[in-house]
Amino acid sequence: MAPLLRLENVTKRFGGLVAVDRVSLEIDPGEFIGIVGPNGSGKTTLFNVINGVYFPEEGTIVFDGRDITRLQPYKRAPLGIGRTFQIPRPFASATVRENIAVGAMFGTLSGRVGVDESLEIADQTIERVGLQEHKDKAAGSLTPVEKKLMEIARALAMKPKLLLMDEAMAGMHPNDIDQMVAFIKEIAQEEKIAVVSMVEHIMRAVVGMAERVIVLHQGAKIVDAPTKEALENPKVVEIYLGHPPEGQGC
C-alpha cells in the first residue's frame, strides 16, 4: 500500500536555527500517529511544513502520490489535509455553524460545494461532534474546550484524508481527554482518516490514541516505533526526564 504522506529528508531552517532537521517519515491511510517531543523540538514547524505554511529548504513531501513540496497551503487543504491549531483559531465573529461551513466550502477538492450545501454539511458535522446548542453562537464566545471541538468539526467538514492535530488535548480535564480520544478515534476509523496528533506532555492522549509514535528532539526524528516501545525507549526517557546524575540512584 502506498503511504498517504511521505516526507523525505525534510529540513526547515530559520536563519541559523534548524527547526526541522532531515526528517523522513511515512504515514499510511487511516493510521494513528502521535508526534511527541519537548517544547521547541520542531513539532509545530513540522506541521507547518506539511500543510504549507512554510516551505522546506530541502527534502520532498509527497501526499497521496503527489509532490506537494512547493504547493501553496490553500491548494493543499482541498487535497485532504485538515488541521487544528495549538491555540484555537476560530473565525471569532462568525457563528459556529458558519465556521464549520467554511471548512466544507473551501476545503474540499471539487471546489463546487455551494453555500447552502456547506451549511447542511456543517449542520451534520455539528450534530456529529455534539455542538448543537452552540451552533448559532459566535465562535469567539465558546469555552476553550468547545473551541477545540469546533476546530475539529471545521477540519472534519473538509473531508480530510489526513488530520493534523496540534496539541488538541492541552488544557483538558483527563476525563475529557479520554472522551475526546475515543471520539476522534471513532470518527477517524469511520471516515478512514489518518490522524497525526502532536503532543508535548499529555501522554495520556498519546497512549490512548496512537498506534505509532514519532519522537522529535531538536528538530530531528530520534524514534519511530509502536507506541509502547517508543515511550519506553531510553532516549525518550532521557529527553523528558533528563540524564540521571552519575553515581546517584533515584
Binding site: 505554511v53 482541498p78 476545503g107
Partner: peptide, 9 residues
C-alpha cells in the same frame, strides 16, 4: 493564516 490552511485562496 487559518483561512489559508482551510483552502481559501
Amino acid at each position: 493564516d487559518a483561512a489559508k490552511v482551510m483552502g481559501i485562496n
